[in-house]
């Protein structure tokens, strides 16, 4: 029975894989079926996931098992209930309070985090003596790092016209950015190929058995 279910699962997987691949040709009924199944199942999955992996372990169990130490959790629970008020048009405006708390808290929390990770840590990582090494390649690399960082920041100046020496510096900055984007593009495409390899493994291995996993 288990083997039969396994085979059925593989055949459904194969059908849906080909249905999604058929999008490469053009939109068609098979793609539409696969798309709707995918969206419907994933939406249902995430709904159940939220209940069993977020609400129950982080709210219901702590509050019911040890209310004294966890009563503070009622605040986010209350904000959650405010969000549900969107279902009642006459009082849907109260959900704005919950949204305001989330956006305000996010802005405050991330200000410190980004200032530390994206500003100070990067600043100190770039503060180096490029001529400390005896290796010419390393010296050039570190000089490029310093110049690239400086000119990159100049590109992101918004309150000054990019003209003259300032404009040239900003232009050098965007060249540095484009080179790094090109490198990132190639690197990420290579990573995406692994997704295709995964699907081909499924088709040629699990389904047709041509290759051994």
């Amino acid at each position: 029975m288990a083997i039969l279910m396994d085979r059925i699962g593989i055949w459904i997987g194969v059908f849906l894989t080909f249905a999604i691949f058929s999008f490469l040709y053009k939109d068609n009924p098979f793609y539409k079926i696969a798309e709707q199944i995918f969206i419907g199942i994933s939406a249902g999955y995430w709904f159940i996931y939220t209940i069993y992996n977020i609400l129950i372990p982080n709210l219901f169990i702590p509050v019911t098992s040890d209310f004294t130490h966890n009563f503070i959790l009622l605040i986010p629970a209350f904000l959650g209930i405010l969000m549900l008020c969107r279902l009642i048009p006459s009082i849907d405006w109260v959900s704005r309070y919950a949204l305001a708390v989330v956006i305000g808290t996010t802005a405050g929390l991330f200000f410190k985090r980004y200032l530390q990770s994206d500003v100070l840590n990067q600043l100190t990582a770039t503060m180096l003596n490029p001529f400390a090494s005896s290796n010419a390649v390393q010296i050039i690399g570190e000089l490029i790092l310093i110049i690239g960082t400086l000119t990159g920041i100049v590109y992101f100046f918004f309150s000054k016209k990019h003209e003259g020496a300032f404009g040239t510096t900003a232009k050098i900055g965007i060249y540095f950015l484009m080179v790094s984007f090109g490198a990132a593009f190639g690197y990420t495409v290579m990573a995406r190929i692994s997704l295709l390899i995964g699907r081909l493994n499924f088709l040629l291995g699990d389904w047709l058995g041509i290759i051994k996993p």
Binding site: L120, L123, T126, M127, L128, N129, F131, I146, F156, F157
Partner: peptide, 28 residues
Amino acid sequence: KAIIIITLLVGVVLEMFGIHFLKDFLAT
């Protein structure tokens, strides 16, 4: 951003002279 550029330039010059004060101070 201007402050960051100035700090970075000063930091690099200090590092070239072997003075690590600024880098150590900024490191969190």
